[in-house]
């Protein structure tokens, strides 16, 4: 098909050439420049830059907050996807449309409203703060806002799989005497595992890089800095201290390697999901 198409359809050279040119200029060269900048440091200096107590605290917070938020998203996402596919209720289409809001809403706006809602005099804060739950300007707040930004992922990966689920297998299980819970655990759940894992990883990957919403709700005190905030702080320091620029690049490289690994993982998971669905 390939050679046939190239003879019949025009524009192979032009479209591929332009794609490669644009991709290199906008994505590959800037990425290479960052690795180059980090490579100005010797190995020892690189390790020192990426393993300062401040950096390690930032990775730890980024990682734990992201994984907690993604785990909560799995629970919420499975419930919402199941309800949207299986049940009828008034306002269902509105709820379905609202699920996508976190993708469309600018992260800065999300961070600002969340801080406002959970402040001691905010709509939810006035009830939660007396109970000792301070979600604005705290680590809890970081997790809460990350739950918001990653919310659609699990819903949107699980929903289509649930829709395509073969009704007959499920009925057969019922006819053969399985109760509803057994049918769910033995028949439905196994096919939901690949899309759930994909959704979890997508939400996690998104949370690891998230900055805009977190910066509004983080207390900005030492120890509540996520990795992207640390990069920005070092970048701003570089005006006074030349070496801070390389340190920022070094930590950016750590973050880049983490997100590329996650990207590959997501690709593998998606391929696995597709094979599972067939």
């Amino acid at each position: 098909m390939s050679t046939v198409n190239r003879r019949v359809l025009p524009g192979f050279g032009l479209s591929l050439g332009y794609t490669m040119f644009y991709l290199s200029l906008l994505v590959l060269i800037p990425l290479a420049a960052c690795f180059w900048k980090a490579a100005e440091l010797s190995w020892a200096d690189f390790w020192e830059a990426v393993a300062t107590p401040r950096a390690i605290a930032a990775y730890r917070l980024t990682f734990t907050a992201s994984i907690t938020a993604a785990a909560v998203n799995v629970v919420l996402g499975l419930i919402v996807a199941w309800t949207l596919v299986r049940y009828e209720f008034p306002g269902k289409r509105l709820v379905d449309a609202l699920v996508d809001i976190p993708f469309a809403l600018p992260t800065a706006v999300a961070g600002m409203i969340y801080a406002n809602v959970y402040m001691p005099n905010g709509w939810l804060g006035q009830f939660l703060v007396p109970l000792g739950i301070e979600a604005a300007f705290s680590r809890t707040g970081i997790v809460v806002v990350l739950i918001f930004t990653g919310f659609p992922f699990v819903v949107r990966t699980v929903q289509p799989v649930l829709e395509d689920l073969d009704a007959e297998t499920e009925e057969a299980a019922g006819v053969l005497g399985a109760n509803r819970w057994q049918t769910f655990r033995r028949v439905i759940l196994p096919s939901l595992i690949p899309p759930t894992l994909t959704g979890f990883t997508l939400a996690f990957a998104r949370a690891v890089g998230e900055y805009g919403s977190v910066v509004f709700i983080s207390p900005n005190t030492p120890g509540t800095e996520i990795a992207p905030m640390l990069i920005l702080a070092l970048h701003l320091e570089s005006a006074q201290r030349e070496s801070a620029a390389s340190e920022a690049a070094a930590i950016a490289v750590v973050l880049l390697v983490a997100s590329f690994t996650l990207l590959i993982l997501i690709n593998l998971l998606e391929r696995w999901s597709q094979r599972h669905a067939q």
Binding site: P30, C34, V208, A248, A249, S259
Partner: peptide
Amino acid sequence: SVSPVVVGLLFVV
């Protein structure tokens, strides 16, 4: 998959 802050840094670098 690249964090927005890192994107900014890429272009500054």
